[in-house]
Every structure is written in structure tokens, then in C-alpha cells.
């Protein structure tokens, strides 16, 4: 598999992060190697140069040198700062997903990965993505902490129960790459993994449409849950219910009872379903029961997908709970 331009012993470089991570890795390794060699060589040289040649010979007594101390405080500090800067640039890029992403929901559970494409197509321990597109994984755990790691993409992220973590990347090379769980999670942790298949756009489209009718569209599933859990009794779409309308709420700024505003992202929607009392929308009473323990992570993904789909529907004129846009 190895290509001449590739570092030996390394996995393929198959994402936007890989060249940056590898360059930084090589830089830090070379700096460390230089100092390891220099210090070792100095010790060996001093041993021979300044050994006792005659019995009873007394060496010169030197207690230190402040200029030398300053030098070897300053040089490693400057080098460390360059390493920090390089790491910070890669890390900020790694944590800040671009806006135009293809969102894929990921659930980790002992000991398998469940992944869901935007159209509801589900996969287990397999992930198909188009090359050259920004992909964002929105990840939740059903039980313990897992970690979604793709060595060929040089990226990974913990999957933490009770939190949503996101991981973004842009695959740059068509192929099939291993992914692993890289947070120890119990008995079968070592075999909790699978394959990412990076395809070109048309293959990906064909693969998506080739899915059988068995896939339940998450929006449809979410709409059914929304009715089954009696959300519809309060969250009326015209904004006149006992709870705020959810039309157009996704990614909108929501004004809270305490005067602050939050962006209604996936994490906010999840929290508002499981523990509604945490953030009360301005102008409403804390009436909603918590759904903690009553919904699986998949149910929450479906509900979120349904709430997202309400984007296209008309926003109620009163816009209760939604902070006016255009001003802070």
C-alpha cells in the first residue's frame, strides 16, 4: 500500500488533516532526535576528554554558569513554543467544523458502531462517505465512553454518554480505511471497529439510492415519536401551545427565561428533551417532563432529524421564544 511519498510505517494519508499532522510529527521527532543525539554525544565526549589521567588528579571545581543556564532555558522554551503553535493550528482546525458538512449520526455501544446517513440509511461497523466532501460525525454513546478513530484520517474523538461530540474530516483519497474504538470500553474493545469506504460522488449517490425500502427515514420515525410521546399536545406549530413552536428552531437563537440566548443545535435539543428544566425558554412555564431514560440515542437522533425538517415550514409570526435575528 505504501507510496514513495509516504512516511514509512505510517498509515496512508487520506484526509485533509493527515499531511499537517504528519508534518508536525516529523518536526517534533527531528527536534527530539537532535537533542537526544547531541546530549548523548556530549556526555560521551566529556567522559573521554575529562577523565582522570593520573591517580590523585583533582578536577576543576565548577558550580555552574548563569549564561549557559539562560541559554538552555531560552532555546528549549522557544522550540516548545513553535511545537505548541503548530499543534494549536492543527487542533483548532480539527475542532472547528465548517458549515457545509454532510452530517452522519454515530452511536457507539458495547461493542459495535451504528451509523446513519442523512437519508436514514443505516450501517453497522461500516461507513460510506464521498471523497472531497466535508463530513461531520455527530456522535453519542449508549453506555460507556468510546472513541471513534480513523488512523488514515489522523483524527479521532471520544464518544461520551450524556454528551454529543462531533468529529469532522474531508476524505481526500478513494479507498477503504480501518476505523477503531480507541478508548478502552470493556471486554471486546479490541474488536470494536470497522471500515470507512471513501467513494467518488457518483458511486456514493448510487450506493445511497441502492438502499432497500427497509430504511426508515429518520424524519418519518421522528414524526411518529413526536406524536407517540404526546409532544404534539404542547408544541403546537402555530406557537399558541403551552410550549414553544419548534418550527424553524433548529440553529436559531433561542431566548431563555434567564435572559441569555443559546443556539438550538443538536446538543441543546438533546438536553431539552432529556432534561427540559435545564434551559427554560422565555415566556414559558417549566411544564415538560424529563425524558431521561425513556428514549434511546437513536430515538433522540430521529426526533432531532424531525425538528430539523421543520425548518422548511413557516415560522409562526409571533416567533415566541426565538430571539430576533439581526441584533444581539
Amino acid at each position: 500500500m505504501s507510496v514513495p511519498s509516504q512516511l514509512p510505517l505510517y498509515p496512508e494519508e487520506a484526509s485533509n488533516f493527515a499531511p499537517h499532522v504528519d508534518a508536525l510529527m516529523v518536526y517534533i521527532t527531528l527536534v527530539c532526535l537532535f537533542f537526544a543525539v547531541a546530549v548523548t554525544a556530549a556526555i560521551i565526549f566529556f567522559f573521554f576528554r575529562y577523565q582522570r589521567r593520573k591517580p590523585g588528579e583533582i578536577g576543576a571545581v565548577i558550580h555552574g554558569d548563569s549564561r549557559l543556564e539562560t541559554l538552555w532555558l531560552a532555546v528549549p522554551s522557544l522550540l516548545a513554543l513553535t511545537m505548541f503553535a503548530g499543534g494549536a493550528i492543527v487542533y483548532v482546525d480539527f475542532r472547528r467544523a465548517p458549515m457545509d458538512t454532510l452530517d452522519i449520526y454515530v452511536i457507539g455501544k458495547q461493542w459495535m458502531w451504528k451509523l446513519e446517513q442523512p437519508n436514514g440509511m443505516r450501517e453497522i461497523n461500516e461507513l460510506h462517505v464521498p471523497v472531497g466532501r466535508n463530513i461531520k460525525l455527530i456522535m453519542a454513546s449508549e453506555d460507556v465512553i468510546h472513541d471513534f478513530s480513523v488512523p488514515a484520517f489522523r483524527t479521532k474523538m471520544d464518544v461520551v454518554p450524556g454528551h454529543y461530540n462531533t468529529l469532522w474530516f474531508r476524505p481526500t483519497k478513494i479507498g477503504k480505511y480501518h476505523f477503531f474504538c480507541s478508548q478502552y470500553c470493556g471486554t471486546n474493545h479490541a474488536v470494536m471497529g470497522g471500515w470507512v469506504t471513501v467513494m467518488d460522488d457518483s458511486d456514493y449517490a448510487a450506493w445511497l439510492s441502492g438502499s432497500s425500502g427497509a430504511n426508515v427515514n429518520p424524519v418519518v420515525a421522528g414524526e411518529k415519536l413526536f406524536a407517540d410521546k404526546a409532544c404534539t399536545t404542547c408544541h403546537l406549530s402555530d406557537g399558541k401551545g403551552r410550549a414553544p413552536s419548534l418550527n424553524g428552531v433548529y440553529q436559531a437563537k433561542v431566548l431563555l427565561a434567564d435572559g441569555s440566548t443559546v443556539t438550538a443545535d443538536d446538543a441543546y435539543i438533546r438536553e431539552s428533551i432529556l432534561a427540559p428544566a435545564a434551559k427554560i425558554v422565555a415566556g414559558y412555564q417549566p411544564l415538560m417532563p424529563p425524558f431521561q431514560g425513556q428514549l434511546s440515542e437513536e430515538d433522540i437522533f430521529s426526533l432531532t432529524a424531525y425538528i430539523k425538517s421543520l425548518q422548511s415550514q413557516p415560522v409562526p409570526a409571533t416567533g415566541a421564544g426565538i430571539a430576533p435575528t439581526g441584533k444581539k
Partner: peptide, 13 residues
């Protein structure tokens, strides 16, 4: 790092 550099410097005069 300071410790390592100081140790390496002891054997010489």
C-alpha cells in the same frame, strides 16, 4: 530539560 543539560555538564572541567 534544564536538569538534563546540567547533568550532562557535570563530568567536564
Amino acid at each position: 530539560a534544564v536538569k538534563v543539560f546540567n547533568w550532562s555538564s557535570i563530568p567536564q572541567c
